[in-house]
């Protein structure tokens, strides 16, 4: 079945030297994909798309803000899948990749929060509003930081990774609840929530850059995940034999 395929696949690439080489081989392609999609997306976002009739040019912030927000959430789902694999089948590569997703996810949350705040200044007149989406993104950032803090607090990295994997899965249950409760809270306290898009839906001419940028940040996440995992496994296995043969230490 599908689980078996995943399991076998992970075991096959699960040997550190294999995984290390795989990261080395794929990372440049993923970065290439990112730069290509981002170049198209940024060109369209800044030069091709006409200004919005309500928000003028400030809506162009959307093309970094929204993909970052989506990736901060999608990244968490990826981490949760890896954490599940790590806990059920005790696969070391999955543990490491789940842990290395956290700093990247946190970086995307920071992009989302900072651009949201900069966008809020001309639109709402304040740098920060207790908008439901911004607030739950802030909580998500703290969850990411908690995962990173928990992992780094353990001497034994494998133990730390497993325990942080439990936290990731607990967070997976929690995040939708937090999101829902914060939405409930803002509607209760603010009367009507401030919306980015007003009542109108997006015009189709505004869509292509958003699609390009969304794909671009997916490439970015994957590339950064491989780069970081490669380093982490090298760090943990620094005294093992394969490192001597594969990590270019002798060169």
């Amino acid at each position: 079945m599908i689980w078996k395929t995943i399991k076998v696949g992970f075991h096959r690439l699960g040997s550190p030297p294999n995984f290390y080489r795989l990261c080395q081989r794929f990372s440049p392609w993923l970065w290439g994909g990112f730069f290509l999609c981002a170049a198209v997306g940024l060109y369209q976002a800044l030069y091709v798309v006409p200004p919005d009739y309500q928000q003028g040019d400030s809506f162009r912030i959307l093309y970094v803000h929204v993909p970052a927000a989506w990736q901060a959430m999608a990244g968490y789902v990826v981490m949760a899948i890896l954490a599940f694999i790590a806990l059920v089948w005790r696969i070391r590569i999955a543990e490491i990749m789940a842990m290395m997703g956290a700093p990247i996810g946190a970086a995307f949350s920071v992009i989302c929060l900072a651009t949201g705040s900069i966008w809020g200044r001309p639109m709402w007149g304040t740098w920060w509003a207790w908008d439901a989406r911004l607030t739950s993104m802030l909580v998500l950032l703290f969850i990411y930081l908690g995962i990173m803090g928990l992992y780094s607090a353990f001497e034994d990295k494998r133990k730390g990774a497993r325990i942080a994997c439990i936290l990731i899965l607990v967070g997976l249950v929690n995040i939708p609840i937090i999101h829902f409760s914060v939405e409930w809270w803002t509607t209760l306290h603010q009367g009507s929530t401030i919306r980015f898009f007003g009542e109108s839906t997006m015009h189709y001419s505004m869509m292509p850059p958003l699609v390009w940028m969304t794909i671009a940040v997916k490439f970015l996440f994957a590339a950064a995940l491989l780069d970081r995992s490669r380093n982490e496994i090298l760090d943990q296995d620094r005294r093992r034999r394969w490192v001597l043969e594969h990590a270019g230490v002798n060169r």
Binding site: L42, D57, V64, A114, I118, W119
Partner: peptide, 21 residues
């Protein structure tokens, strides 16, 4: 290309921040 000067600093600072991260 960012004709309304009012919003340009906000837009560029967002893209700049994205580039830095």
């Amino acid at each position: 290309m960012i004709p309304e000067f009012d919003y340009a600093p906000y837009v560029w600072s967002c893209y700049g921040l994205f580039a830095i991260i």
